[in-house]
Write a protein that binds this DNA or RNA. Sequence first.
DNA 1: TCCAACGTGAAT
DNA 2: ATTCACGTTGGA
Length: 729
Amino acid sequence: MALSLSGDEEEYDSEGEQRAAQRPKPKAGPSAAVKLPSNRSASGARRRRTRCRKCEACLRTECGECHFCKDMKKFGGPGRMKQSCIMRQCIAPVLPHTAVCVVCKEAGKEDTLEDEDDKFNFMLMECSICNEIVHPHCLKVSDASGVVNDELPNCWECPKCNHAGKSGKQKRGPGFKYASNLPGSLLREQKPAKEDAAADAAAAMSAAARRRPERDETPRSRGEDPQPRPQPLTLPLPLLSPRPRPEDKLRKKRKLFDDDEEEELSGRKKETPDEPYFSKLLHQIKTEEEDQDADEEEDGDEGRERRHRGGVSAERNGSLGDEAEPDDKDSRSALLHACVRAAAAATVGDSDQSLCSSPRAGPSSEAGSETQERGPARPKARRKRRLPHRELSRELSRALSSEIQETENCLANENQQPLREEPQTENGETHRLFRGGGELDQRHLKPREMNGTPWELRHFYPGPITPLGFNRSTPASRPPPPRPSACRCCDKRLWTKIDLNRCTSITPLMLSGIIRRQPLALDLSWTNISKKQLSWLINRLPGLRVLRLSGCSWAAVSALCTSSCPLLRSLDVQWVEGLKDAQMRDLLSPPTDNRPGQLDNRCKLRNVRDLRLAGLDITDTSLRLICRQMASLSTLDLSYCNHINDQSVNLLTAAGTTTRDSLMDINLSVCNRVTDHSLTFFKRCGSICQIDLRFCKQVTRTACERFIAEMSVSVPFRLTEDKLLQKTC
DNA sequence: TCCAACGTGAAT
DNA sequence: ATTCACGTTGGA
């Protein structure tokens, strides 16, 4: 029966007995009333948390379709479940306004302070163990520190509990709600998705996961760590030991991407009794931050992978550097949007770190040598505390709103220019949207295989030389090179981009982590992500600019049909199994759901500028739709599309089409039906900068040279490679 | 006062 | 483990 946080026992009321007809009431009767766990008795009941009202989820309208919406009276349901719409489950629930410090009885005062440390000391912190809510400043425990729980705003394990050596689920109150228990981690279940039941399934998972027991956060034994923890959260009590000890690392909380499975596997050794450490711990700053360099802890595969990629890159010998890639350029501008950048910078510590921890789920995790590889100490890092979640959410929301408006304005003006100039980055690293993402750039591919490649082979591309390559009459294709399947994170400092390319197993915790970071760019290419997962992701990433789904199944990609991606600029669906004209039609038609608040019946992908369709069996039917629906299209990759011919090019460049003026970069390499005639069509394109006709058997070099000569009056082109035309200057 | 929905126990 | 149910809390 109902639970009362006050602990008062209750009897079933008559209403309950009436309902018994529908559902048997608990036999336990009064015994079902609350029995507060003993660990709560000391500090009283937990404060229920409430919506932050600022996160993307909170800002949404109810979907009207999910399990919980259908239950609501407003949607004609019985109203028994009384749960939030699954699309609206807050990702950073906050303490209620009525929460006060148990010591001084006052509310949080962080808003009145400037200094980050002051803010922390005067904000309310709820202990996930004893539930006590205090201002850290009000704690007079001068020789202990708390462990900030980054998964939930205003949450920590208070110094008292730390001091007592309590940890994790051993003593945490039941139902303590972490972000990992929030919707983001609801996709733990990875059974094959019944696609028609995706929404309900998600709802069901949602309900379940919210009640999921806490993850064990028992400190784990690790190798020596002579270095200070990178990016620790600021803690209130000035008790830094000069050299954090190995145990420091032990105190790290489980991170988002640490699978339960991993924990179970590794727990045998890791969860050694750590009581002896606690006395030392009392004098240390503790955080739950994951090592920022976690991904560098990976075993040699990563290094080999990098080397491999480097080799591929050189071998590819593309005429354009990655930096010149339009979608990267576009992404860069988006990626460095000021607000988002600020938010990202403010949160870089935890976010990337935990994301980077994803490889740890793999067999090579927990490398004992990690600490040796870590960079030098960052003594200042502990002073840098990320923004509280609500601030961050506010920032993101503001940024997104403005971006959406900007995009719409941009469209209204038919302004094809990028939203922003490409900003300078600190080290240029962020110019690469995805690590290794350029591998999918068809411009850089020397084709070895045509589309029509069996799906299995699309997944397991052969090496540089493959029997298939020899068997085909077309030039040897160059499918994306094989790579280790370890999950990788990208830039460690920013989480505006998340690269899970070829990560064979997308775990629920990964999805949860993605949502929490609200990346602008997401690469899920060659993963086995399911429709349910993708749908869930998209619906929670309203600000997504770049989505790469190369090599995924149509079953998964079809998730795009029912979702709206208003800000999506770059979509990569090359080599998607089963993606043909009919599917393209579904993809380009307005969202299929007519839910309240989803009345936008414009093309879901209307803002896409960079569309990658390589290797698809699409025809002019799809191109007509593209011409009609994607007014901003500037980069189009149709390489390896066997049905594309001169008429297709004619369509794209016909009078009255927006693509005629918007197209800047078209890749028709290995399109064997394209002939010299297409080049005459391209003369009509006002913005064309690059035409890739490499390995088009029916295109001659002579025609290319003629095109250059004829265009030279207005636009100077040159052949940077055989049948690769690029505008000069 | 009303509505939304959190957090829990029981049923499945 | 998942789903259902609902008292109670929190905000408007």
